[in-house]
């Protein structure tokens, strides 16, 4: 199976603090990898490097799409990400979040509406399409962040502590939804978590991040 993500001896520091030191990782197409480790070990930084929000001090991050090697920041919309604090836009309604991301991607208005409806149905948010994030529960907000990440039909999905602050029942439901989507769309997924209990609920490969210091 070809590799979708390739991280080659990446190092990253913030001032004197070394977060990642010559870390390497390969993630195959359609594979799900859980990055595990305590807080401050560099999980979020690694996801941000893959998303192209940060650049490595040394080493390289490569993403392979359709046989071509890319360096992040990637083609717009090829990566979807659920941030740790979700980063939902507080002034936008749920449906508007998805429309905003989909605009300018060669879809007609009707196609956009159709896709928004499908995404809301997929995440069971149809009845909350006109709601603002602050009018939603924690789980609903998490699902909206997930729907936004999936809106552009990404090839790579990055999830940063996606199930923190959720109760066990909601976590199980969301994990189930995630596997269903991953299976349907052959997504390459990288999940960062510090919670060993959470790791046990997730299937796929588990990578323990080494302590850089």
């Amino acid at each position: 199976m070809p590799h979708r993500i390739e991280i080659r001896a990446v190092s990253k520091s913030y001032g004197p603090r070394v977060v990642l030191s010559e870390f390497s990782l390969r993630v195959a197409e359609g594979e799900c990898v859980t990055l595990c480790g305590p807080s401050g070990i560099g999980k979020t930084t690694l996801l941000r490097l893959i998303a192209g929000l940060e650049t490595p001090d040394a080493g390289a991050v490569r993403i392979h799409l359709d046989g071509v090697e890319h360096t992040p920041p990637l083609l717009d919309g090829a990566v979807g990400m659920v941030f740790q604090d979700l980063a939902l836009w507080p002034h936008m309604r749920a449906a508007r979040h998805l429309e905003f991301v989909l605009r300018g991607r060669g879809l007609t208005r009707a196609q956009q509406r159709e896709r928004v409806t499908a995404l809301l149905a997929m995440t069971k948010l149809t009845s909350l399409a006109r709601s603002f994030p602050y009018q939603m529960s924690g789980g609903e907000q998490q699902r909206l962040a997930f729907a936004r990440a999936m809106a552009t039909a990404p090839r790579v999905l990055l999830l940063d502590e996606p199930f923190s602050n959720l109760d066990a029942t909601l976590r199980a439901t969301l994990v189930e939804e995630l596997w269903r989507l991953q299976g349907e769309q052959s997504l390459t997924t990288v999940i960062a978590t510090h919670d060993p209990e959470e790791v046990s609920t997730l299937s796929g490969r588990v990578e323990n991040l080494p302590n850089p210091g």
Partner: peptide, 15 residues
Amino acid sequence: RLHEAARVHGVSWWR
């Protein structure tokens, strides 16, 4: 993160 969320999901800077 609100800016970054737009950037990651392919929204142009002026939008």
